[in-house]
Structure formats: C-alpha cells, structure tokens
C-alpha cells in the first residue's frame, strides 16, 4: 500500500504568491530598464510612452487593486529615484491610478478589447501626469495648460497607442482576454 502525503495547501498558495512577486519584480525591473535605455529609440519629437504605467495598469487588471497599487508605487518610486523631480511624486500618481483602475476592474470584470486598452491607458496617463504636474510645476513658469497641451496629452496618446499594441501582442492578449482577475489580497 502506497501512502501519499499532500503538502499543506496554504504552503502552496504562499509559494505561488512568492513566485508571482518574483516574476512581477523581474518584469518591473526589465521594463524600468527599457524605459530608461530605450527612451531615445521610442521617442517621437520629445514625447515618450510610459511603459511603467502600462505595466502597473496591466498588474491592476490582472491581479487586482492591491497588486496594481504595489506595482504602481514601486515603479513610480524607481522613476522618482532616477529623475530630477521630487521623490514620491510619480509613486503617488502611479500607485493611485493603478489602484483605482484595479478597483474599477474588480467591479466591472470582463475582457477588454485592444481599443479599450488604448482608452484606459490614455485616461490613466492623463490622470497620472496631471497629478504629477501639480507637484512638478510648483514655482515653474510653465503653465499647466501649456504643459498639458505640449507634454501630457501627446505622452498620454503615445502611452495609449503602446497599450493598444500591447493588447494585440500574444502575451498582452492573454492578459486582456482573462475575464476573472487573479488577485493578491
């Protein structure tokens, strides 16, 4: 007679969560590197897409608001650490946007079309950059309307387009077609 001992299921769950965190962190670091180094290649007339926002929103959509908040906050913090602006600004903006998108998706679960990704990321980028510019433009002679027109809007559109392409890519399609998000609570 063979007896099989099943390991504790909660132990498995923890291992899965840990493996997910390691995977997400690796992706986050790679995307941060891409955002920093590939920026000149991706740049069009001084405007760049926010790849880290796509990552944070993607995490929020797939894993829920908590994971979105963590991804947004940490990638935003990394952005802040490398930037010449205030530390904490992008962490606040990105974390907040990813969290509320996660909350929204938890209430309205379902697949999102590539065009839906475009709209979602465009709006997310606008809100994030608007929030950040409230801090970054303090004392600056550049007005918010001017900055909105020349930086925030084009950057949001570019991020939206990249989100659209991300949703069309096989790996992104798998994510956008997943109707029930697997959440880390």
């Amino acid at each position: 007679m063979i007896s099989v001992t099943c390991p504790n299921s909660s132990w498995y769950e923890r291992l899965n969560v840990l493996s997910d965190i390691v995977k997400a962190s690796t992706w986050g670091l790679l995307i941060l590197l891409a955002q920093v180094v590939l920026a000149p290649v991706l740049e069009i007339r001084g405007i760049r897409p926010d790849l880290l926002l796509i990552f944070a929103v993607s995490m929020a959509m797939r894993r829920g608001s908590h994971a979105g908040l963590a991804a947004g906050f940490l990638t935003g913090l990394a952005q802040d650490a490398l930037s010449t602006g205030f530390i904490g600004v992008m962490a606040l903006a990105k974390g907040t946007v990813a969290f509320w998108i996660g909350r929204w998706h938890e209430k309205h679960e379902g697949a999102i079309s590539p065009f839906g990704w475009f709209i979602l990321l465009f709006i997310a980028a606008l809100i994030q950059d608007f929030l950040a510019s409230l801090f970054l433009l303090q004392g600056s002679p550049v007005g918010i309307v001017e900055y909105l027109w020349f930086n925030i809007l084009p950057s949001g559109l570019y991020t939206g387009v990249m989100g659209f392409l991300w949703a069309l890519a096989p790996i992104g399609r798998r994510r956008s077609e997943r109707s029930t998000p697997v959440r880390i609570r």
Partner: peptide, 8 residues
C-alpha cells in the same frame, strides 16, 4: 538613459 518621467 533618459529620466523615465513623462516629458523630457
């Protein structure tokens, strides 16, 4: 690299 923030 460029600063990873929006805008340059």
């Amino acid at each position: 690299g460029m600063n990873p923030d929006f805008g340059i």
